[in-house]
């Protein structure tokens, strides 16, 4: 099976991503808890790129590469959208009450809380986000 998946900047791409991930995780025998963490991180990263990365989705290039073993998975998400560093992005304010709670802005915090390690760099016109999830 290919270890690289290319996606359109379209919400339907998430279903393709998740089907591909399920097969890759099964193939690798990845621990279910680690698989769940990686699935969440990749959904947040790709959703963010699709929703906010492009003025014109026609020229979008999004790719996900995955290496996985039984206890650890590492993904690289690349896209040619506008520069966006999820490690530098401000987090939504902590929830204090139902009345004051923001409706959105949870995705970046979820990625940061869930991944074992995140690394971002901008290379040329490409965002490169490395996500590691591990049972250790």
């Amino acid at each position: 099976m290919q270890d690289r998946l290319t996606l359109d900047a379209d919400p339907a791409a998430l279903a393709r991503l998740n089907d591909w991930l399920a097969a890759r995780f099964s193939e690798a025998g990845l621990a279910p808890a680690v698989a769940a963490d990686m699935k969440l991180c990749l959904n947040e990263a790709v959703t963010n790129t699709i929703c906010h990365g492009f003025d014109d989705p026609a020229g979008a290039r999004i790719a996900v590469e995955l290496q996985a073993g039984p206890r650890r998975a590492v993904a690289l998400v690349t896209d040619n959208g506008r520069p966006f560093d999820p490690l530098a992005a401000p987090l939504a304010a902590p929830i204090e009450s139902l009345r004051s709670a923001q409706i959105g802005g949870f995705g970046i915090k979820l990625m940061r809380d869930t991944a074992s390690a995140l690394h971002y760099e901008r290379v040329g016109d490409t965002n490169r986000l490395r996500i590691e999830c591990s049972a250790d």
């Binding site: 699935k39 969440l40 947040e44 139902l98 009345r99 409706i103």
Partner: peptide
């Protein structure tokens, strides 16, 4: 079995509307 932030957003929006 899977909840992403965009789903959380739907829940919070409805809960806030009800809470008001």
């Amino acid at each position: 079995d899977f909840l992403a932030s965009i789903g959380v957003r739907v829940l919070v929006k409805a809960a806030k509307s009800m809470g008001n």
